[in-house]
């Protein structure tokens, strides 16, 4: 006789989760664990030596610092640019908001290669920007070298990431209770004071969530830096180089584990912020 297995309603529904959970456990978690494990094994035994070597090496410490500082700088610039744009989108745009959202999302759908190509053309030695500056506006005597400068690489990274910041700040601004601002205005606060003492504090958590999102994506990006140069030495770039040329896979595993730790820390911070907002 067949044994009859009775499952409660809840347990049966939980089976719906099984395929996705098993798939990600095998093909997402296992590869990452396997990769990290490789950095802890040397000559068949467990070792922390790669990490102690890595974290005491001035060059590699510099790489970690540069990765974090570059991502933080790109994030700060993106948020500063995004806030006014998000404010216009939510409060002022009216009938234009659909168009604005379209032009925010359309770039998200273009490939990194396309945008990089655009930057290369615009900022080439005889490119549009140099022609404007030298011939049309007469601001410069000779064309400037833009390509392979840190500034252009940062601008290109901001270009990739700023739409994410605008969209997440806009969704928080939308949730601000306008009556609180009206109250402040009625009680005699100026518009600027109302903004800094009411609107901005109410959106700080949202800015935080958006900033972490941008920071996380910035931390992992390398295609822009490979194609536009700028002389940065970041963890993703070094992993890419290790894979391509040096082929020290254990070192690459060590670096990707450190990069993963930074990503997990960001994810944890993001969850804490979201919980505080009660989303």
């Amino acid at each position: 006789m067949m044994p009859t297995v009775t499952l409660s309603n809840g347990a049966r529904r939980a089976l719906l989760l099984a395929p996705a959970l098993i798939f990600l456990a095998v093909f997402f978690v296992m590869p990452l664990l396997d990769n990290s494990a490789r950095s802890f094994i040397r000559e068949g035994g467990f070792t922390l030596s790669r990490y102690t070597d890595f974290l005491t090496d001035r060059f590699y410490l510099g790489v970690i610092a540069e990765t974090v500082i570059l991502s933080a700088a790109v994030t700060a610039i993106s948020v500063l640019i995004a806030y006014p744009v998000a404010y216009v989108l939510v409060r002022k745009a009216g009938g234009f908001s659909g168009l604005m959202i379209f032009f925010l999302i359309a770039p998200l759908l273009t490939s990194i290669i396309m945008r990089t190509f655009g930057w290369q053309v615009l900022f080439a030695r005889r490119g549009l920007v140099n022609q404007w500056l030298v011939n049309d506006l007469g601001l410069l005597d000779a064309p400037l070298r833009w390509l392979n400068t840190p500034g252009l690489a940062i601008a290109a990274l901001v270009h990739v990431l700023v739409p994410f910041a605008v969209l997440s700040i806009a969704s928080v601004l939308q949730g601000v209770d306008r009556r609180l601002e009206e109250g402040a205005l009625m009680l005699g606060a100026s518009r600027i004071r109302t903004f800094f003492e009411v609107t901005l504090p109410l959106t700080v958590d949202g800015i935080g969530t958006g900033a972490i999102l941008v920071f996380m994506i910035a931390n992992g990006s390398f295609v822009t830096l490979v194609l536009l140069g700028g002389g940065f030495q970041t963890l993703p770039l070094l992993i890419y180089q290790q894979f391509n040329t040096t082929r020290d896979f254990a070192l690459a595993s060590t670096m990707s584990t450190i990069l993963l730790m930074i990503a997990l820390a960001c994810l944890w911070l993001q969850l804490r912020l979201l919980r505080r907002q009660g989303v």
Binding site: F27, F28, P31, L32, G220, L259
Partner: peptide, 16 residues
């Protein structure tokens, strides 16, 4: 998977 660096996912998956 959205929050993890793509390059790490790619590199780790290749070996695995």
């Amino acid at each position: 998977p959205l929050s993890m660096p793509m390059i790490v996912i790619g590199f780790a998956s290749l070996f695995f």
